[in-house]
């Protein structure tokens, strides 16, 4: 299926948000996630299915003012 990850189109077979992170080598990374503009807490990623057209955001700590 085709989804958008951090604004970039991506083809994936990952059935869940957790599986997508593993596919992207971010399974153990310090990241937070949102699906279709809504926050998905880390414990819920494995139970969050992905569907064609989904928009995923993956963020990490960064410098800020």
């Amino acid at each position: 299926m085709k989804i958008t990850v951090n604004g970039t189109a991506r083809e994936t077979a990952a059935p869940t948000l957790a599986a997508l992170l593993i596919e992207m080598d971010l399974g153990m990374a310090k990241v937070a996630t949102a699906l279709n503009e809504g926050f998905v807490p880390a414990p819920q990623r494995a139970a969050t299915p992905l569907a064609d057209g989904d928009r995923v955001e993956i963020v990490a700590p960064r410098q800020g003012g």
């Binding site: 951090n6 992207m24 080598d25 971010l26 990374a29 310090k30 990490a60 700590p61 960064r62 410098q63």
Partner: peptide
């Protein structure tokens, strides 16, 4: 210290390094 969140590109783990420094 004020900090932010930004998109993480696959595998770089820049966020982890920054977090440890903070």
């Amino acid at each position: 210290a004020t900090v932010s969140v930004r998109r993480e590109a696959g595998g770089e783990r820049a966020g982890q390094a920054f977090w440890e420094m903070i």
